[in-house]
């Protein structure tokens, strides 16, 4: 476990896996889209709107999956002070927030024609909205402090507290009466979805998971670069010492490198 937490090992692993992740994402995503939009039949009661399920449900799963991942990384960063865990948590937040927002938007676009409303304040929809706010709160918090370490401490604490919301989202439809129907896939007596509809759903879920890991690898890599830049700028400042201004010049140049482009 700790071995993989070393940035150099992570980067090497990410390099090796990247082509595979891209291949899996493109193949499952392409097949899933084809099956979902062309091959799969309309539903007996919801007609063609069932096709919204093939993105709505995977985005909901990803919203929860990313949150659990972010909270685990947050806990690891709080307890063991792994810098990579903190970086992974920060890299996961925008992906999870995007999937949660997409889940709410596509759900709204599905709810209007089928339920007769864009939005209701039932337990499932409200807890999903809280999930989005937890992501946004985390992202605001980690960037709110000048000292990145304090930011990640506060953010990790929020991520951990918010984990309570994950089972609430999942079981809201069983614990309370809601407008949203109960679970169709992850249920005790097996999925209540016809195989012709379950296939595109599962393929899209695999594709979205692959997409998440691709974005994670990219964002972790650029965050590692940013931290290296910060460290170099600091060492550059300390090295001057002989009265020249090269240190601060170096800092400014490094700091503004991207601005001119």
């Amino acid at each position: 476990m700790h071995r993989f937490a070393k940035p150099s090992v992570f980067l090497k692993l990410a390099d090796t896996l990247m082509p595979w992740m891209i291949a899996i994402t493109v193949i499952t995503g392409g097949t899933g889209l084809y099956l979902g939009l062309f091959w799969s039949p309309a539903d007996y009661q919801q007609g063609d709107t069932v096709r919204i399920m093939y993105i709505h449900v995977p985005t909901a799963w990803m919203g929860l999956f990313c949150y659990v991942g972010m909270a685990i990384c947050g806990a690891m960063s709080l307890i063991w002070k792994h810098p990579l865990a903190d970086i992974a948590a920060r890299a996961t937040a925008p992906v999870g927030a995007m999937f949660t927002a997409l889940c709410l938007i596509t759900g709204s676009l599905w709810g209007e024609p089928m339920w007769g409303t864009w939005w209701v304040w039932d337990a499932r929809l409200t807890s999903m909205l809280i999930l989005l706010f937890l992501y946004l709160g985390y992202m605001a918090l980690v960037n709110a402090f000048d000292d990145p370490e304090r930011g990640s401490k506060a953010g990790s604490a929020l991520a951990l507290v918010g984990v309570v919301n994950v089972p609430i989202v999942k079981f809201s439809v069983d614990w309370w009466n809601t407008l949203h129907q109960p679970a169709s896939v992850a249920r005790m007596d097996g999925p209540s979805i016809d195989p012709s509809m379950l296939w595109p759903l599962m393929l899209m879920a695999v594709a979205f998971t692959g997409y998440y890991f691709i974005i994670l690898a990219i964002r972790v890599r650029s965050e590692l670069n940013e931290r290296r830049i910060r460290a170099l700028q600091l060492s550059g400042l300390f090295e001057q010492g002989d009265g020249t201004t090269s240190g601060s010049a170096l800092y400014d140049q490094g700091h503004n490198a991207g601005a001119g482009k």
Partner: peptide
């Protein structure tokens, strides 16, 4: 999200190389 993430990585590489 993919494009902004890639752009961020590219920019960090340029900055790091220069430094």
């Amino acid at each position: 999200l993919l494009v902004t993430s890639l752009r961020g990585l590219g920019q960090s590489r340029i900055e790091l190389d220069q430094l």
